[in-house]
Every structure is written in structure tokens, then in C-alpha cells.
Write a protein that binds this DNA or RNA. Structure first.
Lengths: 194, 194
DNA sequence: TTAGAAACCAAACGATCGTTTGGTTTCTAG
DNA sequence: CTAGAAACCAAACGATCGTTTGGTTTCTAA
């Protein structure tokens, strides 16, 4: 029996606020996207945002959490059918890249916005990120690898390359599926020539 | 016979300004680091910065250019002695990572600050970045690879992983040399187990 | 020694920032 | 139908932002 709990109203604009925040954080970055920008995008007054969030940092946390959730869901459902560990990894990478490069503003915020851009909530952002990477860790853990291969290095190499692709990716010119497949192929097969 | 050209003075504080800007851009990001922060770090008044730079964006460009120059020099001098293409690549990656993770504030700015954080000079920042990557391209080009291996993918995979390491690297816990060697080893040798 | 440019200082400009405060509307449970 | 909470509006607060303007100091070339 909480004291102030009531049901939210159906005309709640919170979802639209989150969408706008995700889009603007992605486009302009955290610091450059102002509360006025976000409020204006949904025809609200700046102060009204503080009914939903105590601060700009908490708004970012909400977007961030949703972004992590979307990436995780995409990867989890993509790897669901696959049995072979390498196929699972490839499917996971494809889903990761599609979410990151095309599908979701929320997911792009997770990669674009550096935790230290919002010092007051940086710890929570890092915690959210690490939560997702656990999923990736299990995919790498399942791979059949030769003795002496560093699984941590393999995971960091792959996830780093995937996330960095946001800087050089161009819609239309590149295809997430293709990129992911090529990356995995480079690690799966011998690379060195005769 | 230029009309307003004169020799700079020896008590010029421009180098110190650049150092401070590089440090603050790295620590706080471009938008969050104010001109007042930078000026204050060298005991200057904010307005005085505009004797050296026409805008905050141009100051970033100057730091960025110096960062690219330092990374390029480090990589070039590291690969200078090596003859074997794979050894050259490894040496280059080590130098790249050392500059990126430990040596230079300037170099870290190049990776940390997104071009779109400064829309007015974004084009020039991208141009500077691409200039450096040409060096990397030539290192990958020289590798003896099996037919069908995508050199572009290999280059993007490696440079992405290296640059992204800035997000998870911890001084003391990780060593740039070790990271670079492991990454190159994963691509050089077959990864798949028996 | 002295012009004159280099390299600042001092002080402010308007704009924009995140946020607060008090009041108003609007939906919904009973 | 009606209380009362939910979801805002309206308006401002102080702080800080990048930048400009006009004057002052200080080095250096001749």
C-alpha cells in the first residue's frame, strides 16, 4: 500500500518525450541537445519535463536503459534459433549492428553518448552497458577455440569494431548484415595467406 | 611581401593554450569544456583566446590536427624499422594504442570528440581523421592475405577495435602493448579450434 | 632608442542553459 | 457527479555560454 501510487493517465506523453530525447541525443549528443529542444519536439514547455524526470541526467538514463533493452532483445531473439556457436555469434552481431546503425535511436544513444558526458549519472550508464555486454560474453564463451586464444581479447575486438562502425557507416552505401558477416568471417577463418 | 606578417613573440602562450584545450576536451568533451575553463587553466581571460582563434570550433580543429599529427608520427616511426608486413602492422597498432591510451591528450581528443559535436567544423575534422587512416590503409594493403579476404573489412575491424578500447581501458590494469599484440594475433592466426 | 605589432586585459553583450515555483487543466476512479 | 491526483502551463530564476569591443602592456626589429 504505497501512499502516492496511482495509475498513469492514457494521454500520457512520456513515450513521445522519450522518443524525442532519443532522437535528439543521437543527433546532437547529450550536452548539445537541450531540454528546450526535447520539450519543443513534442510541443511541451521545458519545465514540464521535470514532472517526468528529476533532471536531464535521469532522462538520459531512461533513454539509455531503453536502448540497452532494445539491443539485448534484438540480439537475444536473433540468436534464439541458432545452435552452432559461430552461427549464434554471427546472428548476434548482425542484430547488434542493425539495431545500432538503422533500427533504433535509443540503441544509437548507448554508443554515441559517452558516460562521462553526464558525470552525475555516469556510474549508472556504465552499469547498464556492462549489463548488455554480458550477453556478448556468453556468446564468445561458447565458441570452440584453440588453446591459448584469449577470449576476452576476442570479445573486445569484435564488440569494439561493431560499435565503432557507427563513425564510418553510411546508410545505403553499407549494409549492417554484410559488415557483421565480414567481421565474423575474419575471426572465424584463417586470415593469413600462403 | 605579406602585409601583416610578423614574427611571433617568444612569450607566446599559444602552446600552453593548446595543451590546456587538449586536456579539457579529453576530460570533459568538446561541448562541456568551456572557453572559460580553457582560459582559466592558463591564467588567461576568456576573450583573450580569440586573439589566437576565431572561434571555439577552430580551437578544436587546431587540437585535432595536432592529435592526428602525433598519432601519425608515432605510428610512422614505430613501423620504420620493421620489414615484415605483419610485424609492421603490429608495431603500428602498438604505437597507435600507446598514443591513444597513455601518451597524448591530443591523440585522445581525436577519438573522444565526435565531429558532429562541432557542426561548424565537422567537415574538417572528418578530413583530418581520414588523413590518418590512409596510413593504416597502406599497412593493411601490404599484408599477404588469402584470396577473398576483404581488406577493407580487416582494416575497419582492427582500427575500430583499437579506437573503441578507449572506453574500457584502465590505466594499470591493461597494457596497450599487450592489447595490440592480442588483437593482431587474433587476425594473423587461425582462430577456430579443432 | 623607438615605432609598431604582438599579446594580451577588462568588461561587458545577448543568448541560452538546467531548473524551480505556483497555478491550471484534464482525465479517471469511486 | 465529483473529489483528487495526473499532467501539464506560464513565467521566471540565476548561472553560464561563446563572443565582441576598446583599451593596455610588452616584446622586438630597425
Amino acid at each position: 500500500m504505497s501512499r502516492t501510487a496511482r495509475t498513469p493517465r492514457s494521454d500520457n506523453r512520456l513515450p513521445r518525450v522519450l522518443d524525442a530525447a532519443a532522437r535528439l541525443f543521437r543527433e546532437k549528443g547529450y550536452t548539445a541537445a537541450s531540454m528546450r529542444d526535447i520539450a519543443g519536439a513534442v510541443d511541451m514547455l521545458p519545465g514540464s519535463l521535470y514532472y517526468h524526470f528529476a533532471s536531464k541526467g535521469e532522462l538520459l538514463v531512461a533513454v539509455y536503459a531503453e536502448g540497452v533493452r532494445r539491443i539485448s532483445d534484438a540480439v537475444a531473439s536473433a540468436t534464439d534459433g541458432e545452435l552452432d556457436p559461430w552461427n549464434r555469434l554471427e546472428a548476434g552481431c548482425i542484430a547488434h549492428l542493425e539495431a545500432l546503425l538503422e533500427a533504433s535511436d535509443y540503441a544509437q544513444v548507448v554508443i554515441r553518448v559517452h558516460p562521462s558526458d553526464a558525470p552525475d549519472v555516469a556510474d549508472e550508464l556504465v552499469r547498464l552497458r556492462d549489463g548488455y555486454e554480458a550477453l556478448f560474453r556468453s556468446m564468445v564463451e561458447a565458441l570452440p577455440l584453440a588453446r591459448g586464444v584469449d577470449r576476452r581479447a576476442l570479445r573486445l575486438l569484435l564488440i569494439g569494431a561493431l560499435n565503432w562502425s557507427q563513425t564510418w557507416f553510411h546508410r545505403g552505401k553499407d549494409a549492417p548484415q554484410r559488415i557483421a558477416r565480414e567481421f565474423v568471417a575474419l575471426l572465424r577463418a584463417p586470415v593469413e595467406g600462403s
